[in-house]
Design a protein around this nucleic acid. Structure first.
Lengths: 333, 333
DNA sequence: TGTCATAATGTACGCGTGTACATTGAATTC
DNA sequence: GAATTCAATGTACACGCGTACATTATGACA
């Protein structure tokens, strides 16, 4: 191109990439020529020559119709990842998991489509664990967000859901509640285990025995919370349950709606605390007490960590980042 | 690679791309060798050689903290785009607009990073209009979703917000309401204009004069709806307003919450209809009447159209697609 | 002035595919 | 049996950049 600016292609490349010593005058001449011709480097050629795509992959759960997971959750994390990506000059390649459960993450790296990858919404099931272990074995950089795999040593950015749950339950205890039910999500998510742990810890701390029959199993969907209301309405009426801690806002809201149909109001007949501080928690009435999770920050950190390591070519896996969460009291407790 | 399978690289390429005549036996030999070696074509080299990235760009508004726009809205559209992309073998490259308003869309194409592009959340402002016009002038394929630019002939997938709004207002009229306020969003969005048009048409149809003082300006955020409640509480009490049609659910919900603080309940002191059929509309109480928009389908269609055209190398711009919406009655009206 | 170190630039080639064109081989036709 | 045709494959090169290495300019120093 700008050979028409009296210099070799190599020099052009050097100028544009700021590599090697360049006479100031030459640099300006090249940049001037590039501007005049409206020259834009071909990213495909660059990627090919550099053997790096400059893309960071973001793996998302398969969602034909986004509804099991909170869109809030993903939007926040995604924005955070985007923030870091921009800062490091990377682009985001969005990848939905296959519906059939196939997860050939290695292929994504082998084809060079991505240089690193952030995993969202992954579950601790054997196939996933194996797929990630292979990824790690092959040395490809990836980072999990909001999901740990015990004993694998995967790079992870998580939030302190144990403490978050403890605080939520402590709060209910402070309100004088003694029969606190817990609506949890599937155990494939490490955060479910964390929350159960926090729930138990808070009870233990208060000298209250844990009772399995107060633990209800949902799947993080609003519907599952709604359906559990049928089982819980009775115990709430009789006082066998005087408060509910739900593992996410969606279930809490579903439960709340279901109990309302049974004539039970949160904050009046029972206390209710959700988890996530999602949009929904602010718009229901009464407004839902919940636990705020720094999703944006988690995404930002996960990507930053990957790209930072990428740049210095180092492999030292940063210690799993665990970000603090905070209890938010509103009107349901 | 699979030259070790007794054939030239060219033949390997032909086999893998299904191009040209190939002896069945050769094909199998190549595929067998590829499998044995675990061969995976280098996507970067492919893209470079084909001069196509195989990426479809998705332009999103700049969102340091996602909150002005409904995350629901984008998640749905994004999923729809993902669906089409997968079907055509494309990947999604996520691109956030620059905060400073710079929008060098052309560069994205010139660098070959994307082959086509879907625009989300774009506004009809001079810079955007110019940027898109340039894109069109240069012949780069792109498609707008939920936003039209009159007189430009851009490829667009929109929803019939005029009819949707008419139905919403008709519904209120059928309920006997005669003083229907309208809370609209910024006029940079064509859908705002559409909704105003629908609002006026429905009034005209019923022989009710349009009154400018019943039109309130929000910005599609929940906060703006909340703030407008201060202005509207009085008129509602006096009966100067007996119903409100809001241009989206977020504003409707904000308004509802604000009016509640003033002691006014939707469905009781006034009727309320929102727009979007977002998650929020289902979880507030009373549940919000609204208008369902096929966002997923819109994303799916936009991408499908682009990629379809891409494949047949044709340039005939499909007629702007306008998808139907549907009124959903719930409890606030 | 000559030597040497360093700055600045040019030359040449590789990166891994896709593909136009050339070549070979086999089937068909007269 | 020669000519023709087309299937099947090989050969060669382009794609646009980055970069190792070679080369030349520049200045410091003796």
């Amino acid at each position: 191109m700008a050979k028409l600016a009296g210099v070799s292609e190599a020099t052009v490349s050097r100028v544009l990439n700021n590599v090697g010593p360049i006479k100031e005058e030459t640099r300006e001449r090249v940049l001037q020529a590039a501007k005049e011709l409206g020259y834009v480097p071909n990213a495909l050629a660059q990627q090919f020559a550099r053997r790096r795509s400059g893309n960071i992959g973001v793996i998302l759960p398969f969602v034909p119709k986004v509804h099991l997971f909170s869109t809030y959750y993903f939007s926040e994390i995604l924005s955070g990842i985007g923030e870091s990506a921009k800062r490091f000059g990377y682009d985001l390649l969005l990848i939905f998991r296959e519906p059939d459960g196939a997860r050939d993450y290695v292929k994504l790296f082998r084809t060079q489509k991505i240089d690193a990858c952030v995993m969202l919404g992954s579950q601790d099931v054997p196939e996933e664990r194996a797929a990630l272990a292979e990824l790690k074995r092959e040395g490809y950089p990836f980072c999990l967000v909001n999901q740990r795999f015990e004993g694998e040593g995967f790079d992870t950015v998580d939030a302190d859901h144990v403490t978050g749950s403890m605080e939520a339950v402590r709060h209910l205890l402070e309100q004088g509640k003694r029969s606190i039910a817990f609506v949890n999500g599937p155990e494939q998510y490490s955060s479910s285990g964390d929350r159960l742990e926090g729930y138990r810890a808070a009870l233990a701390e208060a000298g209250i025995p844990f009772r399995q029959e107060l633990v209800y199993a949902g799947n993080y969907s609003r519907k599952s919370g709604y359906e559990l209301s049928a089982d819980m309405a009775g115990p709430i009426r009789t006082g066998t349950i005087d408060a509910v801690f739900a593992a996410n806002d969606r279930m809490a809201i579903g439960l709340m709606n279901g109990l309302r149909e049974a004539g039970l109001e949160p904050g009046l007949h029972y206390s209710l605390v959700g988890y996530d501080d999602s949009d929904g928690s602010r718009i229901v009435s009464p407004r839902l007490s919940t636990v705020a999770v720094p999703f944006y920050e988690m995404g930002r950190l996960a990507a930053a960590r990957l790209l930072d390591a990428e740049q210095r070519e180092q492999a030292e896996p940063a210690p799993p980042g665990t970000l603090p969460v905070s209890f938010v009291q509103r009107e349901t407790s």
